[in-house]
């Protein structure tokens, strides 16, 4: 396996190693903030890996992926809020208690965002192109304004969670432990995504993006393939939302904002659309720029804009594409 690894494989491995070495160095140098930054990279990368399945493989330009990020965030926020106020989420028809357990929160986040993606996908996939973008944007705005007006859970102010949720056997309040947890999840999802890209489903989805009419004339349903991709994509982004809320110990309607949907699209384009590690590289570059350029000038987004423009104009494969060349088929 290692012997026959492609250039892209080596680059991916280097990115993963870098993502692991930086926080370990920060631990040694006693720079906890750097660990937090690295955790932010990992979580944003996870959100973008999710988006990449819809955008990169399915060709679905979703400007509403913040919906799933927000649902994941609020799944965590609501459950933890009830746990810390010793109230139940609902009592009828069945009693649901709050929880501070990460695995439970993750499960709820994944299931809820997958269901939302199914409903949004069924309605949005009746359209394509600009209309698809607009419908997903509209769903995003709906959730955003709903969250703002949902006073039971803080409305515009959001919800603060005082203590980070727990994971069996770990002290999640220690930054490096929480980083390790997020990093392990990212690795697992990347591995599953790599499998998915090479699977029969991935092959069919890839073709459905390029030539839907061909997919139809070999007896497969391109819309159904894209719908399943959209649901998987939403579920992963939802999981990232739950982790993001735990990182900040805070959820607010901004998690649902269309700006965030745009931001993760930028991460994917920056790193490389449809490339396995594109979103990871994109997230790392984004957070580093945000931190360093943001410290130098408040207009750092202008420079991000310039970089994005250069990439779109001259390197369609993003940073990964620039370094690794065109993607190759695996046998």
């Amino acid at each position: 396996m290692i012997g026959g690894m492609s250039r892209e494989g080596w680059i991916n491995l280097a990115v993963l190693a870098g993502l692991l070495v930086v926080p370990l160095w920060a631990l040694w140098a006693d720079e906890p903030f750097t660990i937090t930054l690295a955790t932010r990279v990992v979580i944003l990368a996870l959100a973008a890996v999710g988006l990449n399945i819809a955008l990169g493989l399915g060709g679905l330009v979703s400007l509403g992926h913040a919906v799933f990020f927000g649902i994941g965030g609020y799944a965590m926020g609501i459950l933890a809020h009830h746990a810390q106020t010793y109230t139940s989420v609902m009592e009828w028809p069945l009693l649901i208690e709050g929880t501070k357990s990460m695995p439970v929160v993750w499960l709820v986040a994944v299931v809820a965002s997958a269901l939302a993606a199914l409903v949004i996908g069924v309605l949005s996939l009746r359209t394509s192109g600009v209309y698809f973008i607009m419908i997903t944007l509209a769903f995003g705005q709906m959730f955003f304004y709903f969250a703002i007006s949902w006073s039971a859970y803080g409305g515009e102010d959001g919800l603060s969670i005082y203590v980070r949720n727990g994971f069996p056997g770990l002290n999640t309040l220690v930054p490096i432990q929480f980083f390790g947890l997020c990093f392990a999840i990212l690795c697992a999802v990347l591995w599953l995504t790599a499998r998915l890209m090479r699977s029969p489903f991935g092959l069919a989805l890839n073709a459905a993006r390029q030539v839907p009419v061909r997919v139809e004339t070999v007896g497969l349903n391109p819309v159904r393939l894209k719908l399943v991709a959209f649901v998987i994509s939403g579920a992963i982004t939802g999981l990232a939302g739950a982790l993001f809320a735990d990182l900040n110990r805070f959820v607010s309607p901004t998690m649902f904002s269309w700006q965030f949907s745009g931001e993760i699209i930028i991460l994917v384009i920056l790193g490389g659309v449809g490339r396995l590690f594109g979103p990871v590289v994109g997230a790392a570059v984004f957070v580093v720029l945000e931190h360093w350029l943001g410290g130098l000038t408040e207009f750092w987004l202008i420079w991000l804009g310039v970089i994005l423009l250069l990439i779109v104009l001259f390197a369609r494969g993003g940073i990964v594409g620039m370094l690794a060349g065109r993607s190759v088929a695996h046998d």
């Binding site: 497969l220 393939l225 046998d331």
Partner: peptide
Amino acid sequence: LAMEDTVLQNVVLGALGAVGRPWRFFGAAL
């Protein structure tokens, strides 16, 4: 044809349609 894909991938797509089992997410198609 899926222009970004290889010749083999394009024909495997047809085979996949014929076999009719696209809902497999793990094993490598090729």
